[in-house]
Amino acid sequence: MTFTSIPVIDVTALIVGADERDAVVDELGRAAREVGFAQIIGHGIDRTLIDELKGAAERFFAESDDTKMSVYIGNSTNHRGYVPAGEEVFAGATPDHKEAYDLSIDLPADDPDYLAGNPLLGPNQWPTLDNFAGPVTAYYDAIFGLGRVILRAFAETLGEPADLFDRFVTTPPAQLRMIHYPHDPSADDRPGIGAHTDYEVFTLLLPTAPGLQVVNAEGTWIDVPYRDDAFVLNIGDLLEIWTNGTFTATSHRVRKVAEERYSFPLFFNVDYDTWVEPLDRFVGEDGPRYDGVRAGEHLFAQTAQSFVYLRRRLADGEIALPDNARPLYSLGREAQRSAPAV
């Protein structure tokens, strides 16, 4: 379907267990099928946690380049740390005009998966900055908890038990990105972040200014209006695969960021080894439209193709893509318009 606006959904009933819960589940399902995006309000996240997260980000990105590069993501073995401008390049895009700090579930240094060389699990690479790790971790825990609630609602709207996916969420590589878009007077001529889909199950985004756009079935880019009381929710690659394309990982980008802007997406994911393939209820006589993928391998393969330091490691033979790695930008609404899924 061709959408022209982004729905706003009040999820209070999901948080408090009110009688209107079924209606909210239906709204989420309709948004996932028809748009792939929604703005959710009534989410219950404490405003203090949000303000303290923003303060931590402002302090970190105001540090010198040398200080930020002391936790450069290329120094890590599990994709954690500072991402300088130009480090991440999406398919067909110019280098993004942004900087970021990436973290995920903070596992101990003796975690067996980390010691075994898992490329996405393990400890975070924290900067030596006062009052940073505490508020960032507090926000991560809160938004991840909201993600669990949304995941159960998605299971229900698919006609499955609410706990369908729960067993896959123990120590997932669910990444929180703290992104800084500097003031850019030439923003009309250059994207802040290139068009892409998100590689995980879904995303819960907290922006501080407008700039986000999503593409509809006709290829028209639609602005997501900025609301300071909402999280932007969008479907990721894995839900598109699980639903055999019934839910769509709608492509999106950031444009015209003339003002300074921060954004904080949580890429909600399932455990690294989770096998994701179309659910039986969505597979017709013609069979599945999508091959199955291992959740963590799909995330790593897409990440390795878009980060300069990982592409360098690929070229040097230090790492390798999984055998069934998809090329960048092979899922989502734009990909569906141009070619059949595989």
Rank of each mutant, 00 (worst) to 15 (best):
M1R: 07
F3V: 09
V8M: 07
L14Y: 10
I15S: 01
A18K: 11
D19R: 12
D22C: 05
D26G: 07
E27A: 14
G29S: 07
A31V: 09
E34L: 06
F37E: 04
F37V: 03
F37N: 02
Q39T: 07
I40H: 05
G42M: 12
A57D: 00
D66V: 12
N75D: 15
H79Q: 14
A85F: 02
F90P: 01
A91Q: 15
A91M: 14
K98P: 00
A100G: 13
D106V: 10
N124C: 11
P127L: 03
D130S: 15
N131M: 07
F132R: 08
T137E: 13
A138D: 06
Y140F: 10
I143G: 00
G147V: 07
L151F: 14
R167C: 04
V169A: 07
P172R: 09
Q175E: 11
R177D: 00
A187C: 03
D188K: 09
R190D: 00
G192M: 08
A195H: 06
A195W: 13
H196V: 12
F202I: 10
L206M: 14
L212Y: 05
Q213E: 15
Q213K: 12
A217N: 12
W221H: 00
Y226H: 14
D228G: 08
D237C: 11
D237W: 09
E240V: 12
T248Y: 06
A249P: 08
T250S: 13
V276S: 05
G284S: 12
G284C: 00
D286N: 14
P288A: 15
G292W: 02
G292C: 09
F307P: 00
R312W: 03
A315V: 07
L321E: 11
P327Q: 08
S330T: 06
A341V: 01
